[in-house]
């Protein structure tokens, strides 16, 4: 792909800025706009633009694992987050559990965040798999 100089130079930024933003969106999503879907989409968009500027190979290297694996890990994470519910025998599957660590930062830790991370990973895997497959097919 005949990427422009600007695109090539700014590529690392193009990858890491959306990544950071997406993680931020994911983590704060429970209390402010954001969440696994939005975060995952932003991260995917970052990876897609990285692929457009530096090539798909580079993007896949940056991802470490194939997109399909991200899908699988994400689904398993989401599925597994619900299992902890059974620590309380009376609770149904996917009843989230919460811990309130006694630190000054009010950050309740819950399996809901784990579930959302699962969503985040699945969305990244899905979108990148689809876009890379479709676009890669055309660009060779």
């Amino acid at each position: 792909m005949d990427a422009s100089l600007i695109l090539r130079v700014s590529a690392p930024l193009l990858l890491w800025v959306p990544m950071a933003v997406s993680v931020y969106l994911l983590i704060r999503g429970h209390n402010a706009p954001g969440g696994g879907f939005v975060g995952g989409l932003v991260a995917s968009a970052g990876l897609v633009f990285y692929a457009i500027s530096r090539g798909q190979e580079a993007a896949l290297r940056a991802m470490r694992l194939p997109p399909a694996s991200w899908c699988g890990i994400g689904l398993l994470t989401a599925l597994g987050s619900g299992l902890l519910a059974w620590l309380d025998p009376s609770a149904g599957y996917l009843t989230h559990r919460w811990w309130f660590p006694d630190i000054s930062v009010t950050l309740p830790l819950g399996t809901a965040l784990v579930f959302d991370i699962g969503v985040y990973l699945t969305v990244i895997g899905t979108i990148t798999a689809m876009v890379f497959a479709l676009v890669g097919e055309e660009t060779g």
């Binding site: 429970h30 706009p33 969440g35 899908c71 689904l75 579930f115």
Partner: peptide
Amino acid sequence: GRNVVNVILVDFRALDTLGEIAVLA
């Protein structure tokens, strides 16, 4: 959670969301 939309997605209707991401995959 203060973001009600997100709470619905990951908590109240988490099983639906699970189904949806499965469809996506």
